[in-house]
Design a protein around this nucleic acid. Sequence first.
DNA 1: GCTTACCTGCCA
DNA 2: TGGCAGGTAAGC
Length: 317
Amino acid sequence: MPELPEVEVVRRGLAPHVIGRTIAEVEVLEPRAARRHAGGPADLVDQLRGVRVAALVRRGKFLWWRLEDAGGEDLGVALMTHLGMSGQLRVRGADAQSDAASSDAVAASSGPRPDPLRHRRITLRLDDGTLVDFIDQRIFGGLWTSPLVTASDGQAAGMGGDDALLPADAAHIGRDLLDPAIDLEAVAARIRARSASVKSLLLNQEIASGIGNIYADEGLWEARVRYDTPGSRVSRARTLALLEATAAVMRRALEVGGTSFDALYVNVDGRSGYFARSLSAYGREGEPCPRCGTAIRRVSFMNRSSHFCPACQRKRS
DNA sequence: GCTTACCTGCCA
DNA sequence: TGGCAGGTAAGC
């Protein structure tokens, strides 16, 4: 499940392939992947054909492509990409290697494997022949365009950009925990001002963005805070510690994730490497807490799973 | 502020 | 075959 670190891995992997390139053609194989585009799939194709990619910018889990015309004039609109639950962006063609021969070779050596393009929904063809595939099994994610507006604090809108312009559809999204312009004291104050559960506030992308179910559980475990503690019942110091711990987990994930892809293949699978080894609570129901040995519990909360140590993360209500 | 819909594949 | 995975946004 792509959260902030996974989306940042995609941004870094994709950037050298697309920045400065022109979009030559767009193929929409699954209209539902463009359902957030106001004008529909055909309009998305028309709007993107012939425009140049000026930058790839990310805030939280939102990744957008800044667009300019052939003369380098900003078009005032961005191509939004959100990976949802199962989205991937992959590069093929041109300098990337993903043809049938190499796929067959892999299949022959490691047994049958699913077609990597099985859930291809949209493909962008760039002027140098590079193909960028948006692949998404569950179609929670998608591509659409959104006009640029100015960030309210006037600071750089996200990672990969140098001005305060961001898509209107991302303007309600808070800065993420790895954003140098984030005001952690203000985020902590917003959490402490509310009686809702601290986990629901961590997952609220308007307060601070980029955190999903996995990193929320990990951050809460690190800071020894239980998921259902009201925001208002967490001390200022512990709230700041929680935010710092969550940021630290995401930074570590980013470091590991950053080594698992090469320049020719933009890997977006959040499970690669890091997930198999480094999680302390998420997905570890019944296993001993790495800190105290008590069995990790899994409970259903807010229609999703919450993993926690019943000894380290005590009820504070 | 909570619930529901959107989605598909996998697993018990 | 029903439950589960969960990010986002609309609806109540």
